[in-house]
Amino acid sequence: MARFSPLEWPVIRQLRSSDASGRGESVVSQKTRETTARTTTADNVVQSVCPYCAVGCGQKVFVKDDKVIQIEGDPDSPISRGRLCPKGAASEQLVNANGRITDVLYRAPRAKDWQKLDLNTAIDMVADRFIEARRKHWEDFDDKGHPLRRTMGIASLGGATIDNEENYLAKKLYTAAGAIQIENQARI
């Protein structure tokens, strides 16, 4: 390591250069010159949407070696114009948290322990239960013969953590299935 010289002090560099205000190149250290943002080393940049609320702020997700290294606001987003709230700005921690569960877990009725399932098995279980609930609770007509064409066996309570487009698709799915009990927690 080279020995530090007093000639490298910022005030001495300022006096030796034309940087009279001391806000230019004379106050920048060699370490600062060599520092680069971790976003410049990213292999890929992916556009995404913040997962926390229904606002739908745009995010730029920086990926290196198949791992998220930084998440920033997307300046091209017409919704947030590059800004993120504190939760959105910290969403990289959500992705890379050590305690994040990445397996599908299932606990059978009255069982004490959870068991891991593969994704296809879990999706099939949900689909089978959805279809069975619709079939079992289907109502074609009321007592007076008026057409109902609905099911009371399926209800949906959406969350504010999904954006408007996802809520729209959920509403379309449940309406097409005949459900009429569709609500969003943001309204409750």
Rank of each mutant, 00 (worst) to 15 (best):
Q93M: 07
A170W: 01
P10L: 07
G24T: 15
E183Q: 13
W9T: 10
R23G: 10
Q93A: 11
S91Y: 03
I188S: 14
D140W: 00
P75Y: 03
A97V: 09
R187Y: 15
D128H: 11
I12Q: 10
S29V: 02
D143I: 03
R38A: 10
E139W: 05
T121E: 12
P86N: 09
Y52D: 12
S17W: 07
L117A: 11
I12E: 10
L94M: 11
L148Y: 00
E72T: 12
T41N: 05
P78F: 02
I182L: 12
Y106F: 13
A54W: 07
D124R: 11
A54M: 10
D113I: 14
I131F: 08
V55Y: 03
A170D: 00
S5D: 13
S17G: 13
K171H: 11
L15P: 00
P10N: 09
K60C: 10
N120Q: 14
V28D: 06
K116S: 12
R13W: 01
A108T: 04
C85E: 04
S29Q: 01
G145S: 03
R135Q: 06
W114K: 09
D65S: 15
D113K: 14
P10D: 12
Q93V: 04
G153F: 04
R38K: 15
A42R: 00
G99P: 02
G22W: 08
E183T: 05
A176T: 13
L119Q: 15
C50W: 06
I71P: 00
V11N: 01
R13E: 04
E132C: 06
T161L: 07
I162A: 08
I182A: 06
F62H: 15
G153T: 01
D140M: 00
R110A: 14
C53A: 10
R150Q: 09
G158F: 01
S21F: 09
E132G: 05
P75C: 00
C50N: 09
P51H: 11
E25G: 09
N164W: 10
T40Y: 02
P51K: 11
A89P: 04
G58P: 03
V68P: 06
D65F: 06
D43H: 04
A179C: 15
L157T: 09
R107H: 05
V63T: 10
I101G: 02
Y52A: 08
V45N: 12
M1W: 01
M152Q: 03
E8Y: 03
I79Q: 04
L105C: 06
R187W: 14
T151Y: 02
Q185V: 08
K64Y: 08
C85M: 04
D74Y: 03
K116W: 11
D103L: 04
H146F: 14
R13M: 08
L105F: 07
C53E: 12
D128I: 09
K136E: 08
E92K: 09
M1A: 08
I162N: 00
D163K: 08
D65I: 07
A179R: 02
H137E: 00
L119H: 11
D142Q: 03
L94H: 00
S91L: 04
T102G: 11
I101R: 02
S80C: 02
I188L: 12
R150P: 01
Q14H: 05
R149C: 11
